[in-house]
Design a protein around this nucleic acid. Structure first.
Lengths: 189, 189
DNA sequence: CCACTTGCCTAAACCCTTTAGGTAACTCCA
DNA sequence: TGGAGTTACCTAAAGGGTTTAGGCAAGTGG
């Protein structure tokens, strides 16, 4: 019998595709085995368990998202950087809904610390260099940016903004305008 | 054999408790049956299936959250109203993480339309009466508020802001200050 | 080319979901 | 108040997903 050529990476990539097609919660060892035309038990030489698989998909997505963010930030500053970075989040979530959902998968602290999560925070800090903020306001602002990006994208993915005027794209642009205005005029404590 | 006194409502309430204790994704017919010391099949006279159960928990949570929001808004305006309403979201999510997660459960359009979701939007619009915004900016602002509330609460629940200074409470307060400042000084299109 | 390693397999135990069909417990009203 | 009718819970069974243990065959290196 020919071998299927399973590896952890191949499984993770296929899992990410499956997530985008069917939803992150549809990522199961069973579904993955079907996709490789292999028995379920065979996967367990490559991944520890389903939790492990999902964790690896989450790490992949965080990495991809951070890479896109880094590209977007290159050579940009100020509102230009803010806009480009925000669009990376939203576009990624729209192109890869399952992977985006994976980024919200709860990681245990050590795994999270070793993930690309830190890069995300660093990039937001970099954006803020284009605005006049000192610590701890910088951190507050990073958290607010993260909240808006994630919150908007998540509500939009949940259908929250569809079927009602105005267009979601319009609200998104205005949200970025608003954030830019806010960062330029950050209220004192 | 004595009857357990199952009803749809009792199941939904127990399901909500279970969600808060163990997580919304741990809400299963099996776990619920165990909790009532009843066979799993018995639940199916009261709920159609697991999806139905989760939907009802979501509707309960949306309702509870809207009720709390309405109480908080009574007699308040401006930043006072904004702060009180924002805290309702965050406090609810912290007290009832499983129920809060349930509010993000995807509902089919008709169910969503009949849910308390509309009340939430109405309340945010009411808050904006304390600020000087016309349509469509009002809608853009509602969406931004929703994004910040949900985004912050979700990231915080995921552990995003723990284990790093400054305190999450501080960032939350400053986020509300920032939103207030932003709404008072909303940038023109 | 033989020994070793590795990849995929079968088998089995366990849990969750859902439907079909039965019996015992309530309700109510003649 | 004691059946008739309804309702609540049950057993049984089929279908999936997860995970471990143990086996054979396909690849790999001395």
């Amino acid at each position: 019998m020919a071998r299927a050529g399973l590896t952890a990476q191949r499984l993770v990539e296929a899992g990410a595709e499956l997530a985008d097609e069917a939803g992150f919660d549809q990522v199961t060892a069973s579904a993955l085995a079907r996709r490789f035309d292999v028995k379920v038990a065979s996967l367990y030489s490559h991944i520890r368990n389903t939790q492990d698989l999902k964790t690896r998909i989450a790490l992949l997505a965080l990495e991809e998202l951070a890479d896109r963010g880094a590209s977007a930030l290159a050579g940009r500053a100020g509102k230009d950087a803010l806009t480009a970075f925000a669009n990376v989040y939203r576009d990624y979530a729209r192109e890869h809904p399952g992977r985006y959902a994976a980024t919200r998968f709860r990681l245990d602290p050590e795994t999270a610390a070793a993930s690309a999560g830190r890069r995300h925070a660093e990039m937001m800090r970099a954006i803020l260099r284009g605005y006049d903020l000192e610590e701890p306001d910088r951190t507050h602002a990073v958290r607010l940016l993260g909240s808006v990006f994630h919150g908007y994208v998540d509500l939009e993915a949940g259908g929250g903004f569809s079927h009602s005027a105005p267009d979601s794209q319009e609200s998104w642009s205005r949200a970025i305008d608003a954030l830019d205005a806010l960062l330029r005029n950050w209220p004192a404590a």
